[in-house]
């Protein structure tokens, strides 16, 4: 079994992630990430080729696809939602994990997880972009930077009050704040706090238990994790490769498929 490789592909709205795990030990053999672009299938195939190349293999024994573009991979052995995959992946990284908070490109979710990595309950944000990566992307774009730079700018700053969570109306508010001389760092911190408060409101519907693990692209920012810990009132753990959590979960499920 140890020669086998299992792949997980997570085709999110912003990025496609692929993870390869080894049969038996279940250790990660390779990871790759690419922007989703307009063709999730092509990006997914490319990400898969990248991880296989890194591992020096021709093919994976089994593949599980997840993320909003998961139906684009006819070669996958199974499609599983990102909710189940994030739960599975988070427990693999943090065994004491009881709650997963995932801020994705187009939706955010809070997942209550069983010790075996299956989902006990979950909540997702409403139809709009409030509290998602897309909201931060819109705000960062307004400030002429990317999301990573926005999070870095927020580091150590006193957040100013942002009241609008609408990706469209927040623009008016932020332009006003900057015009009144607010420091961009304070505005950036205010935006992160607004997202954290939105997640807090979402999480209130689910009992937070066990270790709270923060996954998804935004979790790579320490400022974001700290803001979330502060608003939720519990220490939020961030895995080393937070953006790959869903793909890792998918690879774990691929390894367990019969």
């Amino acid at each position: 079994m140890s020669g086998r490789l299992y792949a997980g592909i997570d085709a999110g709205s912003a990025a496609v992630k692929a993870v390869l795990v080894r049969g038996g030990t279940l250790e990660v053999a390779a990871r790759a990430i690419l922007p989703t672009g307009w063709n999730p299938r092509e990006s997914g195939e490319k990400a898969l080729a990248m991880v296989l190349e890194q591992a020096g293999a021709d093919s994976a024994s089994r593949i599980v696809a997840t993320g909003y573009g998961r139906v684009a991979f006819p070669f996958a052995d199974r499609n599983v939602t990102e909710i189940s995959c994030h739960a599975k992946g988070a427990v693999q990284i943090v065994p004491a994990c009881g709650t997963v908070i995932d801020i994705g490109g187009q939706d955010s979710k809070v997942i209550s997880v069983q010790p075996d990595g299956t989902v006990a309950d979950f909540v997702m944000n409403d139809k709009c972009a409030a509290g998602t990566g897309r909201f931060l992307q819109a705000v960062a774009g307004m400030l002429g930077m990317d999301v990573g730079a926005l999070c870095a700018l927020a580091e150590g700053e006193e957040p100013c009050a942002i009241t609008s969570m609408c990706a469209v109306f927040a623009e008016t508010e932020i332009v006003g704040l900057l015009a009144r001389g607010k420091a961009p760092g304070s505005v950036a911190a205010g935006v992160l706090r607004a997202v954290a408060r939105r997640i807090h409101a979402l999480a209130a519907r689910i009992p937070l238990r066990g270790e709270c693990v923060f996954t998804g692209g935004l979790a790579a920012s320490p400022a974001c994790g700290r803001m979330l810990s502060q608003e939720l009132g519990v220490e939020v753990k961030t895995p080393d490769y937070p953006q790959y959590t869903g793909a890792l979960g998918a690879a774990m499920l691929a390894a367990r498929l019969r």
Binding site: T81, S84, D107, V119, A120, F122, M124, K127
Partner: peptide, 17 residues
């Protein structure tokens, strides 16, 4: 029909649960 795909994810995740 606007939210069909979002609902589909919720329902699929629920059924996986």
């Amino acid at each position: 029909e606007a939210d069909t795909e979002q609902l589909r994810i919720r329902i699929e995740a629920f059924l996986e649960m």
